[in-house]
Amino acid sequence: MPAELYDIRDDRFKKLIHGNAGMDTLSTGGRWTEGPAYFPAGRYLIWSDIPNDRIMRWDEMNGAVSVFEQPCRNHNGHTVDALGRMIACEHRGRCISRYEFDGSRTVLANSYDGKKLNSPNDVTVKSDGSIWFSDPSYGIDSDYEGDAAPMEQDGRHVYRIDPDGTITRVIDDMRQPNGLAFSPDESALFVADTGRTHFPDCDPVIRRYPLAADGRSVGQGENFVTCDTGLFDGFRFDTKGNIWSSAGDGVHCFAPDGTLLGKILIDEVVANLCFGGAKRNRLFICSTTSLRAIYVNARGAG
């Protein structure tokens, strides 16, 4: 297997990769690519190009790349709910929105406690239909990825939207909560903290929060893994509980016990990733200016 593509730290990683599966570059020309989400019914992928204020679309059938929406209110993270609808984090919209089957847009959350959200960043949907999202300040820090504006919340937190529309703050002990995902059994919520961009003393970690018995709140969090190159941003679980995370030098893969198994090395900073394809065994990677993909010997959870 090509030495320049993989950094193997544990023999278990060899079973999660294909030595003859090279990296594909599917699209270039972005400024800061983010928020990939795969739509199995249409066999296409969408992702954000935040500073260019556009959502891009890649067609799995013919490889065509097109603009899905522009302007798009500086979307960042995306996910797909159980009905196949797109859930979006909007920096400039300062909200979580949902794209309906008829193409209309529904705002699901744009405030908490009567004050505007900062700039929702990443989002995940739990099996009970609740939507959990992070709300750091990147979209209001400048005009590059949104609209510069004062923060109305008392910090940067994680929230839950219930199916009835109720919005609850679930995590308030992070500096800049960013990527987030549930473990495959939904026993814990994992959240990346990119607070080092604003607070030099903040460790670049993914934190683990155990879910309460009711599945609607979390217990005390703990640092789970620390990034050795750059920052963790978006990440996903595979069905075996391994974490595949973005980092400064590519994609880092961690075992369920937190051991760094290995890295997929990329010559750009990786912001986010997701699993897709007919077998959910293709990793789609947003790496600064480009969208890349590689087949792995793992299937995405969820």
Rank of each mutant, 00 (worst) to 15 (best):
A293E: 01
P256C: 13
L189C: 05
M174E: 08
R236A: 06
D228L: 06
L265N: 09
T124C: 15
R280E: 11
C89P: 01
F68W: 15
P184H: 00
C89Q: 09
F182A: 11
S217D: 13
I264S: 00
D49I: 11
D24R: 02
N110F: 00
T28F: 01
D7G: 07
D257Y: 02
R169G: 03
M1T: 10
P40A: 14
W132I: 07
P136I: 05
N178H: 08
F39V: 09
I167S: 07
G300K: 05
D143K: 03
L265I: 13
P256Y: 06
K240M: 07
F232H: 12
R31F: 01
A278D: 13
L283E: 00
N242R: 11
V65D: 14
D193P: 08
A298H: 02
I17F: 01
A192H: 01
F254Q: 04
R280A: 04
G29C: 06
T194Q: 14
C274V: 05
S183I: 09
A82N: 14
F232E: 10
F235P: 01
I96Y: 00
G63T: 08
A278Y: 00
D59R: 15
L261A: 03
C89Y: 04
G277D: 03
T289Q: 10
L211C: 11
G215A: 06
E222N: 11
P163I: 12
N20Q: 13
D173Y: 07
R43F: 04
V107I: 15
I266S: 01
G277A: 03
A298P: 10
M174A: 06
C227A: 14
V251Y: 03
I243L: 12
H78F: 11
T166K: 15
L83T: 11
V158K: 12
A247E: 13
N52K: 15
R236L: 02
S48M: 08
P71V: 01
D193Q: 13
D162G: 04
G63H: 08
V123R: 07
E100A: 14
T33V: 15
T106M: 05
A255I: 11
F182E: 12
A3N: 12
N223Q: 06
I285M: 00
G302R: 14
A88V: 07
C274S: 12
S134N: 04
W132L: 03
N242L: 01
G146P: 07
G63N: 09
R280D: 09
G195N: 14
A41E: 15
A301S: 15
D249H: 10
G195Y: 12
R207Q: 04
I50F: 10
G179N: 04
A109G: 12
P51L: 12
I161R: 13
D81H: 08
K240C: 01
I131R: 11
T288P: 02
G114A: 01
I285K: 04
T229I: 05
I294V: 14
Y38D: 10
C286S: 10
D102P: 13
Y44P: 11
C72F: 06
V158R: 10
L26F: 02
M23V: 13
D24P: 01
D203L: 14
K240G: 12
R160P: 08
A212L: 08
D59T: 07
P36T: 09
E145R: 13
S217G: 08
C72V: 09
S27I: 01
L180D: 06
R175M: 11
R73V: 05
Y159I: 14
D203T: 10
S130V: 04
T259N: 02
T288E: 10
T25V: 13
M151E: 13
D102M: 06
S246M: 06
